[in-house]
Amino acid sequence: MIVFEPLIAPFVEFEFMRRALVGCLALALGATPVGVFLLLRRMSLTGDAMAHAILPGAALGYFLFGLSVGAMTIGGLVAGLAVAMLAGLVARGTLLGEDASLAAFYLISLAAGVLLISLRGSQVDLFHVLFGTVLALNDAALLLIAAITTITLLTLALLFRPLVAECVDPSFLRTVSPLSPVAHYGFLMLVVLNLVGGFQALGTLLAVGIVILPAAAARFWSRTISGLLLAAVLVAVCGSLAGLLLSYHLDLASGPAIILAIGGIYLLSLLAGPEGVVTRRLLHQRHLQA
C-alpha cells in the first residue's frame, strides 16, 4: 500500500485534486477523439490556431464580467466559431490558403485578447486565461466540461461515418449524401467547444495540448481508427493523472505538468510504440516471407 499512497492520497485528501482529476478525465474522453480526427484530417495546426482564436472572446467576457465561467465561455465560443468561419471564407474567396488565413486571424486574436485582459486585469488574470487553473475548477467549470464531453461523444457517434468518409474521400461523401457540410461544420463546432472546455482547465495556450498530443501519441500504437481513439483516450488519462501527481509532489504548475506528462508519453510512444521508430526498425531487420 506504501507504493500506492503517493498515487492515491493526494486525491483522497484534497477536493481540489479530485476536481482537477474529474475535469481532466472528462476532457480526455471528449477532446482527444476530436484530436484524433483533427490529426487524421491534417488539421493539427488548425486546432492550435483556433485555440488562440478563442482568446479575445474569452477576454471580452472577462473584461465585462470578470472571471465568470459563463461569460468567458460564451465569448470564447463566439470568437472561435467566428474565426473558423472567417478563415474559411477568406481561404475560399481569396488567394490565401486556409492555413495562412487562420494564422493571420489567430495572431490578431491573440494580440487583441492579451490587450483586453491587460486593460482591466493583473498578470495573475492573464496567466489564468493563458494557462488555465486546473486546480481551481469550480462546479460551473466542471459541469461545463462534462456537458461539452457529453455533446462531443453523442455528436461524434452520430457523425462518425460521415466524418470518416469525408477524411478518406471527400468528393464521395458529397455525391452520396447531403451530410458533408453537416460533418464539416459540426466537426469545427466540436473543435471550438472542446477548446473552450479545455480552456477552463488549461488556458488558451495549453488547451490544444490535451487535444492533439494524445492523438499524435496514439498514431504510434494503432493502425485502426477504433484503436487510435482508444489509445488516445488512454494516453490522455494516464498523462493527466501523472501530470497532476507530479505537480502535487514536486510543486510544479499543474497545467504545464499535465501537458508535459502527455508529451513524455508521446516521446515514449514515438520510440517504443508498435509503430514507433525503434520497434519498426527492429521489425524491419527481418523481412517476412509475403
Binding site: L158, V168, L179
Partner: peptide
C-alpha cells in the same frame, strides 16, 4: 483525391458503397 494514409480497412472502404442502404 483520396487519403490512403487514413487507418481504414479495405472492407470498411468498400462498405461505403452501401450508403444508400445503411446511411450514416
Amino acid at each position: 483525391d483520396l487519403d490512403r494514409t487514413f487507418p481504414l480497412r479495405v472492407d470498411e472502404l468498400v462498405s461505403f458503397g452501401l450508403w444508400h442502404r445503411v446511411g450514416a
